[in-house]
Design a protein around this nucleic acid. Structure first.
Lengths: 193, 193
DNA sequence: CGCGACGTTGATTTGCCTCAACGATTGTGG
DNA sequence: CCACAATCGTTGAGGCAAATCAACGTCGCG
């Protein structure tokens, strides 16, 4: 159960078996069905989680009442509302499972405790945040210049499994376009081939 | 010279005067004229800097040869190409001063040294990265849904000084629109009032 | 079966881009 | 000090990508 998780952490820093045991102890194993709300707008995000299995979306509701999907997260991804979690303020976002999902999650207090016991983990999590920042910045500037078609091609290249796991209108939302537009893009790509 | 800088750091963690002295020693004071290139595409970003005075832009050149501005940074902001700096890989970006600018900057080696000497600073920089992440995520999702006019209104509300310090076509670039479009938006806003 | 969720397709509209021309301002060399 | 160019912002005309609105087919499920 912990293999990928351990690897993800010891990638960045080596831990004694005692230390690793403490880590395991502070992360709680959780299983939930699809369509479970893990976080609602207005709640303080109480967890940071590593996804062992499943698929999750993170989104907000815009002023017209539509879902805008910021992120899909699958196996071996970290999941949280970083803003809400680290600053312990109410979230603006929703987090919801798309499939039955298995997580390892830690609370804010336990994460603080973990840092106190094993300070070198500060480094690991700083690197994780930096990585997340890079990914976001990349996505941001392809979003600024690329056309919808390019963004879609980019998406399926980067996440080839997601189209099979996520309904198309949610992918459209992630790409920042309407479902109709995505449908037409796909049709036009088929015609080209 | 160090007031705002010190405050920015001791906000998150308290330091002894010895520790603070070490920090000061490892950050180098630098002054440069406007239009100085601080980073070129292809270089490994050698610094992380705190802006004491001045204004800087961070941008890349798109496939049509146009500047796309990702960030303006002014007094009391941190500045770096985080991806390039932390992973020590060649940058895709340019960083250039818009005004005469005064910086406190640290090298990669010295930052590592700093962390080794004062591990609790890992925490400070983790929090800084997280803050940067929040800002970016916010900007990202207003970019996904908001119209150009909304983005502009947002911008002047958030950074009321920048329109006086930065030419309008660069603001347009930052907002992801053409200078013409921004000009029209401004004209239309004036008409409304 | 019948209903709702999802994807497709068509017609129309719209927000922003592109291209082009034109003032206003600033800087520069003669 | 003026002539000239360069830079910047504005305005107009036309075009295009994607949004909106609407209708329809298909599939899975209570």
């Amino acid at each position: 159960m912990f293999e990928a998780f351990d690897e993800n952490i010891t990638n960045h820093v080596s831990l004694s078996s005692d230390e690793l045991a403490l880590v395991h102890q502070l992360f709680q194993h959780k299983i939930c069905r699809k369509k479970t709300m893990l976080l609602n707008k207005g709640q303080v995000c109480g967890f940071e989680a590593f996804i062992i299995k499943g698929c999750v979306k993170r989104y907000y509701i815009d002023h017209e009442g539509d879902e805008v999907i910021l992120q899909f997260a699958v196996e071996n991804w970290w999941l949280s509302d970083m803003v809400s979690f680290t600053e312990q303020v109410p979230s603006l976002l929703y987090i919801e499972t798309i499939e039955d999902t298995e997580l390892l999650q830690i609370t804010f207090q336990n994460k603080e405790l973990l840092f106190k016991e094993i300070p070198k983990l500060e480094r690991v999590f700083r690197l994780l945040v930096q990585r997340a920042y890079s990914v976001l910045e990349n996505r941001f500037f392809t979003g600024l210049t690329a056309s919808a078609e390019e963004r879609y091609l980019n998406f399926i290249k980067k996440y080839p499994v997601l189209p099979q796991r996520v309904p198309q209108y949610q992918i459209a939302s992630y790409l920042g376009i309407t479902p109709e537009a995505l449908s037409r893009i796909r049709a036009s790509l088929l015609r080209k081939k």
